[in-house]
């Protein structure tokens, strides 16, 4: 191949790559744009064809309607607080388990734990719903924040443990061995030597678990009433009986997506590298 042909090929390749990336980014972002656009559209402009992309009078009416909904503040607060507490619990518990899995190939109950983790990840929650509802109601924990916190934490443990195990595995064993030679106890090695090194991994795991928790639908829709209601349940409520509310629905969705968008912008690099590490070394 001659030089100029090769340069031409390379330029063409680059142009094609950009074209593909731009197309993909458009496909990825359009529904988000359309949600936000619907949320600030007057109703009359929502159902017209050709669709109104920018030529409409933006309005905040839909947001006013949502914010005026009885209990909306509490729903938002519930989602925040449950996400925060449950994520903390999940990451803490998973980190401990991950350390055990990464460092001790043959501890007692290891085999059973692996089966348990995989099954918890693989079995659809719906299978467990009726017994869970019965157990939880009998214990008087229906619609209880603490119960939701524990439930969410438990369902996300397999994923968090999987990620954390690979982060722990990256810490060189030699560091721990030399600390042990210096006379440090097993627990203090974990606390003083390993923990600081896996903090970046923990923060990536935290973000992922928080996202999963924030978005969870089936658990709160079955196990929570009004007291502990979360945003996804509130949004799903628009499907029935409030049949014309696409605008407020889009506004509620936007409000639910907002924190996620913020997290993505701020922690994009961490998310990517976090999942990357977990993915490859898992």
């Amino acid at each position: 191949m001659t030089g100029p042909t090769r340069t031409l090929m390379r330029t063409l390749g680059t142009v094609a790559s950009y074209a593909a990336l731009i197309l993909a980014a458009f496909a990825a972002l359009f529904p988000l744009f359309w949600t936000i656009s619907t949320s600030v559209k007057p109703r009359a402009d929502t159902f017209v064809l050709p669709p109104r992309f920018f030529d409409f009078e933006p309005t905040l009416r839909n947001y006013e309607a949502i914010l005026a909904t009885r209990g909306f503040a509490q729903i938002y607060w519930n989602t925040l607080i449950i996400t925060a507490a449950s994520t903390a619990l999940c990451v803490a518990v998973s980190t401990l388990a991950a350390y055990a899995l990464a460092r001790s190939p043959g501890f007692r109950s290891r085999g059973a734990l692996e089966v348990g983790l995989i099954l918890t990840r693989a079995v659809p929650t719906i299978v467990l719903m009726v017994p869970l509802f019965q157990i939880i109601s009998r214990m008087g924990l229906y619609d209880n924040h603490l119960m939701l916190i524990v439930m969410y934490a438990a369902v996300n443990i397999p994923f968090a443990t999987w990620l954390m195990t690979s982060f722990v595995a990256q810490v060189p064993m030699a560091l721990e061995e030399s600390a042990a030679v210096d006379g440090a106890s097993r627990a203090s090695i974990l606390w003083f030597v390993v923990l600081p090194l896996i903090l970046p991994g923990m923060s990536a795991t935290t973000i992922f678990v928080a996202l999963l928790t924030w978005n969870e639908f089936l658990i709160p829709v079955m196990l929570a009433g009004n007291n502990a209601k979360t945003l996804p349940v509130f949004i799903a409520g628009f499907i029935s009986a409030r049949n014309l509310d696409w605008g407020p629905m889009a506004a509620a969705s936007t409000l639910a997506i907002l924190p996620i968008a913020l997290v993505t912008v701020i922690a994009q690099r961490k998310l990517v590298s976090g999942l990357s590490t977990g993915a490859v070394k898992g």
Partner: peptide
Amino acid sequence: IVPMLLTPVAVGLM
């Protein structure tokens, strides 16, 4: 990566 982060319920409705 935006699509994998958004709330599926909201995304589903849209």
